[in-house]
Design a protein around this nucleic acid. Structure first.
Length: 422
RNA sequence: GCGGUUGUGGCGAAGUGGUUAACGCACCGGAUUGUGAUUCCGGCACUCGUGGGUUCAAUUCCCAUCAGCCGCCCCA
């Protein structure tokens, strides 16, 4: 019986994990500049939190949650996204009372959705997300969008398309909702089963349906932009103005509807063009959720955020052939010959490492030639050769791999010598 | 949940109803008793995802199952 990795998950092996570390570091640096602070919440929560927070008309809640009962009979769910958890923590820790508002948080961590795996879609995947709670200033919307665009830009991605829309405030949404129902209801039987469900629960999402995309009623459906009240219109205009001021290019797409129920006013997505993506074109999605904190039991608090997938980012980097500036290789590799030299290698390696050098040596009894090959493979800058001859004079032979030059250095000075060469 | 496609050594990849499963790369050893290239020589799959069936005989045919990849739905 062989064990296998669970479906839709992956091991991230060293070659890849270096990229992950680089990207995670970039996230921390970027968020620090924008003054967003990291929050770490559990990977599971009460099931009810997601049902209420994400919205029970969503696919996520209806068919994609990893839900289980613990031994105490509590229903728990592996988090399918990060916003609900963050908002729960905001409420539970009374962050609305913190001195600095809005509260600006970010997170990086695994999310879980039970889906058929395919390109750009895993059952466990990692999201980087940002949430700003406590301000209804359109400048925050622009800041959050700007942060996400900066992230991709600083990693070197191009051909990104930022799409924004406004779903309006409660009043605008309601008016639009009624208009949509009025528009589709007489002929709803011509639509797919999903859309017939959507008519009552969330008619907005009919516009998002790929199956019925070509139906004539789609093209003539009332646009949300025509139903925005004055507040929502002004708000959306300001967001656009700020984006333009920041030299961030975007398109307004009135059919952009985010799949989660909690969004209102600003919604946005970052898409990528080009071959190699199959069905996946959305790298990042986000929007404003002014009612969510209240829904989850907190005081009325506006909020906005986004989430993006590191896996999809890596795909994008791959497709655009962008190599991250990753440092690799050892400062030195110790090659020993003979029992005596082998015997002093633990002490020697430990001493070098204690002084901050990245060094390694042989542990499987390789012949000298094989040790040299290993040093070469592992991109050691120097090889330290230690045999009976050197040991007899308390020296060590050091060879610079790039030039082939070598010289003897007193054994007890070798660490300083290498450091002086860096 | 639905559909397509694939599943042979660490990786890539041939192959056939029948005594020993090509080849390439990588790796290990030797030629070269203390030096990373190249070359040459040698080594490296009781086994062809798993289970069952057909057959005198199956990696090769059939069924099931699992998994990967891709698409639909939906999303990050």
């Amino acid at each position: 019986m062989n064990y296998r990795i669970p479906r839709g998950t992956q091991d991230i092996l060293p070659e890849q994990s270096r990229k992950w570390q680089f990207i995670e570091q970039k996230i921390h640096d970027l968020c620090n500049r924008y003054n967003y602070k990291e929050i770490r919440t559990p990977v599971f929560e009460q099931t009810e939190l997601f049902a209420r927070g994400v919205g029970d008309t969503t696919d996520i809640v209806q068919k994609e949650m990893y839900t289980f009962d613990d031994r105490g009979g509590r229903s728990l769910t592996l988090r399918p996204e990060g916003t609900a958890s963050t908002v729960r923590s905001f409420v539970e820790n009374k962050m609305h009372g913190w001195a600095d508002q809005p509260v600006k948080l970010y997170y990086v961590g695994p999310m879980f959705r039970y889906e058929r795996p395919q390109s750009g879609r895993m059952r466990q995947f990692v999201q980087f997300g940002v949430e700003a709670m406590g301000s209804a200033d359109p400048a925050v919307d622009a800041e959050v969008i700007g942060l996400s665009m900066d992230f991709y830009r600083e990693l070197g991605l191009s051909n990104l398309k930022l799409v924004v829309n406004s779903l309006g405030d409660k009043e605008s949404r309601n008016n639009h909702r009624n208009a949509l129902i009025e528009h589709f209801e007489p002929r709803i039987s011509e639509f797919c089963a999903d859309c017939q469900q959507r008519l009552e629960k969330n008619p907005l999402r009919i516009l998002d349906c790929k199956q019925d995309n070509d139906h004539e009623l789609m093209a003539t459906a009332p646009s949300i932009l025509d139903y925005l009240n004055e507040d929502s219109t002004d708000y959306f205009k300001l967001v656009q103005q700020y984006l333009a001021d920041m030299d961030i290019r975007f398109e307004v797409d009135p059919t952009l509807v985010r799949g989660l129920d909690y969004y209102n006013n600003t919604a946005f997505e970052i898409m990528i063009d080009g071959e190699g993506f199959g069905a996946i074109t959305t790298l990042c999605g986000g929007g404003r959720y002014n009612g969510l904190v209240e829904d989850i039991g907190g005081p009325t608090t506006p909020g906005i955020g986004f989430a993006l997938s590191i896996e999809r980012l890596l795909m994008a980097l791959e497709v655009q052939e962008i190599s991250l500036p990753i440092e690799e290789g050892l400062d030195a590799y110790l090659v020993t010959m003979g029992e005596q030299a082998k015997a002093v290698s633990p002490k020697l390696l430990h001493g070098l490492r204690s002084k901050g050098l990245a060094v390694d040596g042989d542990y499987i009894g390789k012949k000298m030639k094989a040790q040299m090959k290993a040093a070469d493979r592992q991109k050691a800058e120097f090889v330290l050769l230690l045999g009976d001859d050197e040991l007899a004079e308390d020296n060590i032979m050091v060879k610079e791999m790039a030039t082939g030059e070598q010289k003897q250095v007193p054994l007890k000075e070798i660490a300083e010598w290498i450091i002086s060469q860096r």
